[in-house]
Design a protein around this nucleic acid. Structure first.
Lengths: 352, 352
DNA sequence: TTGAAAGCGCTAACAC
DNA sequence: GTGTTAGCGCTTTCAA
């Protein structure tokens, strides 16, 4: 039952040629070196035997495995499935397959997975795990294996990366709130040790100043992770400033949902008492009550772009690496409301 | 910069031994054949050079790649991330890495990915894509590569699989509704050409009869896919039976959300006008309004169990393959309500 | 255009 | 215990 695997030798024998000839006939790049007739004969033999070349043996010879390692923190985080899907869809037409690994943001786990992938001779690596300054990324780059960061960027700008244009995204959120009449805007930032956390935090400060609003330090809280729980924890720290703000810009949808939870617990109504914006537009946000106004990022595109960047021949050269920005858009839903209309709502507290 | 890769030859040379000796010293299984002193000498040389064995070369020799192919319909479907995560977490400690591919339920894409994976000499295959009777699964099994189905089972019971105990899960939902006083219970089934769709549909019929309730054919609709849109479409077909039912059991959370959408559109309130149950317990369901009562499945466990089943030595033998059932539990939330209490709610229609 | 021969990096018989 | 030798399945010089 364990059907003996067909090898090139079998095909060559059936076609009555040498393995080298069979190899040439089967490889599109070298088919020209072989006469029309033998080429078809070999092709037929291969089909008859249902021959599948052993990519490992080929890889050993050619030093290419047509395999790409994809390292992410956690596929269970709704952010990553579309990224991974985008990567795979871009990889597949080029004949590449993805090796996937989760690191849970643990540096040691990351190192382990990277070593495994290098040992497996991946042709490239896509990492969504990088910290802003990450020795592991440097290590990979130094090893000569092409690497592209996705949804993260490195301080070392020789490392190519594909990231959201967070400056623009946060500006979209802030301007939206300002246009609704909000001026006292709080901010729940993400972890500053990853580039997206830092970029969005900085973007918030800048966007506020652009609107001639001086950000209030006491209205800024920091979540240590992009999670519901951390969002809730961080947001709670802002509650003592009772009434000092009418809107919140968060660095991430999960953080925003954490804010929802705390608001429900405190009897605060959204958007009447507080407008709130998320970031990413993960699935089901439109089904929440209220539905969450958020900055949409095409994560699929983020992944696909990263994969294409990796496949580009330029990726291996020491060309000045590129950082590609993906444009976000604003999705206005029910969690934001004009300050004027909010004031008309039946009052329930002394918040404003 | 493209650092030349260190090979076993380099290590052997530095340690002053033959490559074979170096190989033996480095491989835990054969270390015993080598003297203590040389073993450490080789180990030191390996460490000094930062040697990483080329797994491809090793695989060529040993016919094992320590790679497992994972084929799923779509990682973007919230069902699959925890399954994939479970698989990878079970695989990693055994030194295996997962090759991931999405098929979008397209048989041709599936075939292509399977061929690619076989060509890559995967040591096994985990498929979440199987139809109830799937020639591709037979093909893989015949090729001698161990295969395990996850969240799906085959009619050919020689194929091992790990699936939810849907009989029990649906029974949990039906009994819950009955205990709340519901008797006229509708059902939005999933696609019958996949095992989970069929199993849950059958389970519904059985569970109803167990409760001495004859299922009403006109109160059963079929979604062609496990999606929000199909759930909505199927549910709409039940509306003309206006008032004939007070509760709905759905085959899947996304289908249930589709029902939510239609209810909102029709001005029907949940749970006052209609109680509804989902299946799977995907993330964020608890944040919906109303939060969705659903049958929880530990998808992570589903994946991890499948991976372990694949790794078991027995998996390759033609032993009577096992089908492992994973136990579901009921998560009661806000979308179900006792019929009596519902009757007390301010009436808004002639539904009941 | 095709064949012969070598070798990618590693492991497994088989000697010594 | 360690070295010698061979070979996994394939591609790629080099000749013919």
């Amino acid at each position: 039952m364990p059907a003996p695997r067909i090898t090139l030798v079998d095909v060559a024998r059936l076609a009555g040629v040498h393995t080298a000839t069979a190899s040439r006939a089967l490889n599109p790049a070298t088919r020209g070196q072989v006469s029309e007739s033998t080429a078809t004969r070999v092709a037929e033999a291969a089909k008859a035997l249902n021959y599948q070349p052993n990519r490992m043996a080929r890889g050993l010879r050619t030093n290419r495995t047509f395999t790409v390692g994809v390292l992410i923190p956690d596929i269970t985080n709704p952010l990553f499935p579309p990224i991974v899907r985008g990567i795979e869809d871009a990889l597949a037409p080029a004949g590449y397959t993805a090796l996937l690994a989760n690191s849970d943001n643990d540096p040691e786990t990351e190192r382990l997975h990277v070593e495994t992938m290098l040992a497996r001779q991946v042709d490239g690596l896509i990492m969504a795990t990088a910290r802003r300054s990450d020795p592991l990324v440097e290590h990979v780059a130094a090893s000569g294996v092409p690497v592209v960061l996705v949804n993260r960027r490195s301080e070392d700008d020789r490392i190519p990366s594909v990231v959201p244009d967070d400056g623009k995204g946060i500006r979209l959120a802030v301007r939206h709130l300002v246009s609704l009449g909000h001026a006292r805007i709080a901010h729940v930032a993400g972890p500053l040790h990853v580039s997206t956390g830092m970029a969005r935090h900085r973007a918030f400060l800048e966007a506020m100043r652009e609107e001639a609003l001086e950000p209030d330090e006491e209205l800024i809280a920091f979540a240590r992770w992009f999670t519901v729980e951390e969002g809730a924890r961080a947001f709670r720290a802002l509650l003592p400033t009772n009434g000092r703000f009418t809107a919140v810009v968060t660095a991430n949808d999960l953080i925003a949902i954490g804010c929802y939870d705390v608001m429900a617990e405190q009897g605060l109504r959204c958007p009447e008492d507080l407008s709130i914006t998320g970031y990413n537009d993960i699935p089901l946000l439109d089904k929440l009550r209220p539905s969450l106004t958020t900055v949409r990022l095409e994560h699929y595109e983020l992944g696909a772009t990263a994969a294409n960047l990796l496949l580009e021949p330029a990726a291996d050269a020491s060309t000045s690496a590129r950082t590609i920005l993906v444009e976000p858009t604003l999705v206005v839903r029910g969690s934001t409301m004009s300050l004027a209309r909010a004031a008309e709502a039946p009052t329930r507290s002394s918040r404003r």
